[in-house]
C-alpha cells in the first residue's frame, strides 16, 4: 500500500449533510476511542495485579534470588532485566539501523524498478514469518554456528574490545549475541519499510536541484534525502526499538534464560519480555513471584509507550506504514 504518499490527516470534514441517520458516527465514536480505553485498562489491570507494593527499596537491584518455598528469603530487583532488554534491543537497533539505511537507499536511489520491487517483496516476506519460527530456527540451526564458530572467532580477533572478550555462555551456544542477531533480522523489515517511505517522500524539487548542481546520486542521497527525511528516519528507528523491546518468544528461545546481568556478549542472560513470557507458568504456584513478573511487565509497558509516543511526536505524518509492512508486497 503506497501509504507513504498519503496526504496529511484531513481537516475536520465540512458540516455537509449531517443527517439524522449517521449511524456510523453513532457506533463508531465509542469504537474509535476503544484503543485509548484499552491502553489505559491494560495499565490499570497490571497495576492492580502487581499489588502496588514492591516498588521501592531494592526495586532496581540487579540481583535475582528466587527461593520457591521461601517468600521472605527471596529477593530480587528489576535491574538485570531492564539491562538485558536495553542491551539486546539497543545492539539490534544499531545493526538494524545501518542495514535498513543501506537497504532503503539501495531500493529508493540505486536499483532499477524490477529488482527494487522484488527485493521489497522479499523483505516484506521476512516480516510475515512468525516470531516463534525465528526462535526455533535460531535455537536449532543458528546456535551451533554461533557457539562453535562465530563467537570463538570474534573472541580471537576482537577480544580486546570490552564485551567481546568475556566468557562463553555456560549453557550451550545460547546468549546475548544470538538474541541480538535474531532481533536484528526481525525488525529490519519494519525499519526498512519506514525509512524507504521517508526517503521517498522527499520533495522532487530538492533532489532535482541537487542533481542539477552536479551532485552524484550518493551525494544527493546522503545530503538531501537523508537530511530532509531525518525525522522520518528517527521515527523508524524508535519504532524498531519498540518492536525489539517487546519481542518475547523468539528471544526467550535463544537468549539462554539466565536472570542476571550479562557477563559478555556471548553469555546467557535475559530480557524483560522473554522472562515474563516463560516464567508465568511457574508463577501460577507462587503469588509473590507473579507480582514481580507483573512489575516487570509494567516497566516494559512504560518503556514501550514512551518510545512509541516519542516516535509519533517525531513525525506528525501518518505512521501507518509501520502497521502495514509485509501486507502489501509492492514498493
Amino acid at each position: 500500500m503506497p501509504a507513504g504518499e498519503a496526504p496529511a490527516a484531513p481537516a475536520a470534514s465540512p458540516p455537509v449533510a449531517r443527517a439524522r441517520t449517521d449511524r456510523w458516527a453513532w457506533v463508531g465514536s465509542p469504537l474509535a476511542l476503544l484503543p485509548l480505553l484499552l491502553v489505559a485498562t491494560v495499565a490499570i489491570v497490571l497495576l492492580v495485579a502487581s499489588g502496588l507494593h514492591n516498588f521501592g527499596g531494592s526495586f532496581w537491584s540487579t540481583r535475582y534470588n528466587f527461593l520457591p518455598g521461601d517468600p521472605a528469603g527471596s529477593s530480587w530487583g528489576i535491574g538485570a532485566f531492564v539491562a538485558g532488554t536495553a542491551i539486546t534491543a539497543g545492539l539490534a537497533l544499531v545493526l538494524a539501523t545501518a542495514l535498513s539505511l543501506a537497504l532503503s537507499i539501495s531500493i529508493v536511489v540505486y536499483l532499477p524498478s524490477l529488482p527494487s520491487r522484488v527485493l521489497t517483496i522479499l523483505t516484506n516476506l521476512l516480516a510475515g514469518i512468525p516470531s516463534v519460527v525465528y526462535g526455533i530456527w535460531g535455537f536449532v540451526v543458528l546456535a551451533p554456528y554461533f557457539g562453535f564458530t562465530l563467537e570463538p572467532g570474534l573472541r580471537d580477533v576482537l577480544g580486546w574490545l570490552p564485551g567481546f572478550g568475556g566468557p562463553a555462555s555456560e549453557i550451550g551456544p545460547y546468549g546475548i549475541l544470538l538474541a541480538v542477531f535474531i532481533l536484528t533480522i526481525m525488525i529490519i523489515p519494519l525499519t526498512t519499510a519506514l525509512m524507504r517511505d521517508a526517503l521517498r517522500s522527499v520533495p522532487h524539487d530538492l533532489i532535482d536541484a541537487g542533481l542539477a548542481l552536479g551532485a552524484t546520486r550518493w551525494e544527493v542521497a546522503r545530503r538531501v534525502r537523508m537530511r530532509t527525511a531525518r525525522l522520518g528516519i528517527g521515527s523508524a528507528i524508535l519504532l524498531g526499538f519498540g518492536r525489539a523491546v517487546g519481542e518475547s518468544v523468539a528471544v526467550a528461545m535463544v537468549i539462554g534464560a539466565v536472570p542476571r546481568l550479562p557477563l559478555s556478549l556471548y553469555s546467557a542472560s535475559t530480557s524483560q519480555a522473554s522472562f515474563i513470557f516463560y516464567q508465568l507458568d511457574s508463577a501460577f504456584f507462587y503469588p509473590f513471584l507473579l507480582r514481580f513478573l507483573v512489575e516487570i511487565a509494567l516497566v516494559l509497558l512504560a518503556i514501550a509507550l514512551i518510545v512509541n509516543l516519542a516516535a509519533q511526536r517525531l513525525t506528525r505524518t501518518e505512521i501507518a506504514t509501520a502497521t502495514t509492512v509485509g501486507g502489501a508486497g509492492g514498493p
Binding site: G246, A273, A297, A304, L305, A322
Partner: peptide
Amino acid sequence: LLAGVPAI
C-alpha cells in the same frame, strides 16, 4: 499506541 503495546 495500542499497536506499540508488547504482545506479552
